[in-house]
């Protein structure tokens, strides 16, 4: 399993390095702004950093889906399917690698943010404007229509929820890609059907999540979301792997 993950990482490493490089540039801009007293630069680069971390998560997921598509529909598929690994393992390695990447990226961005704030605090004069920027940014984020209050549990739960909901989205895309490659291969409107299927799966999941009563605290609600998303991901993972095992011809 670890070996499969190693190669999954190898496939995505270029993109991840590019993302890291861009984040590094934004960070350098922030440091220049901070120590050069260019408030505007520092503020903008912080916004850029926050934006980039979301974009990064999105790109990592998207790439994982396109790689799966390539791993099913090109000669490259032999590399995976000639090895004595079950479809569960092959798919599992992809999900884990992707999830782990997002988790690590999140931890990295979080650490970077903490570092930046510490640095900003150390240079008092930069602190006020920076804090305003952050608050201004966060005031635009709402959960279930409620203004986000910033405290550690909420941040952690939100982060967890972003992770699991994105994993669920990716797994549903996997399912759509596999159905397209294994069951609809060669049929008309194959791509379109699988895309519609993907939308339907996500719509269904959103509906299901919408049924969760909104009477608990924000943290509890988020944790229920996380649990539901994980269960749905697991179900779709099993269905996808079964289809691969039984029906997929590469």
């Amino acid at each position: 399993m670890f070996k499969l993950m190693k190669y999954e990482f190898r496939k995505t490493q270029a993109t991840k390095l590019i993302l890291l490089a861009i984040i590094a540039i934004a960070e350098i801009a922030f440091l220049i702004g901070l120590y050069g007293n260019y408030d505007m630069t520092a503020g903008l680069s912080i916004v850029a950093l926050v934006f980039l971390s979301f974009l990064g998560v999105f790109v990592v997921g998207l790439e994982s889906i396109t790689i799966l598509h390539r791993d099913m529909n090109t000669r490259q598929s032999y590399m995976l399917f000639m090895t004595p690994n079950s479809s569960y393992k092959i798919l599992g390695a992809k999900v884990l690698e992707c999830g782990l990447s997002i988790l690590l990226a999140g931890a990295f961005v979080f650490a970077l943010g903490a570092l930046d704030i510490t640095l900003a605090v150390a240079r008092e004069q930069g602190l006020n404007s920076l804090w305003e920027m952050i608050q201004n940014f966060l005031s635009h984020i709402t959960i279930n229509g409620r203004q986000l209050e910033i405290d550690a549990p909420i941040l952690a739960a939100t982060f967890l929820n972003i992770l699991t909901s994105w994993i669920m989205t990716i797994v549903s895309a996997y399912l759509a890609v596999v159905i397209s490659a294994a069951l609809l291969n060669g049929k008309k409107f194959n791509g379109l059907i699988s895309f519609v299927l993907f939308l339907l799966l996500n719509w269904g999941a959103a509906k299901l999540l919408g049924l969760i009563p909104d009477t608990m605290s924000s943290v509890a609600t988020l944790l229920v979301y996380v649990a539901v998303e994980l269960v749905l991901s697991a179900i779709m993972y099993v269905v996808t792997a079964e289809i691969m095992e039984r029906k997929l011809s590469v």
Binding site: Y7, R75, Q76, M79, T83
Partner: peptide, 24 residues
């Protein structure tokens, strides 16, 4: 062994060997 080439395009001949070593 298939007729068509199937290795990942980032691989060197050494990498191909390591891949097989990892899985077989």
């Amino acid at each position: 062994m298939s007729t068509e080439p199937y290795f990942y395009n980032w691989m060197t001949i050494r990498d191909v060997g390591r891949y097989y070593e990892d899985f077989f």
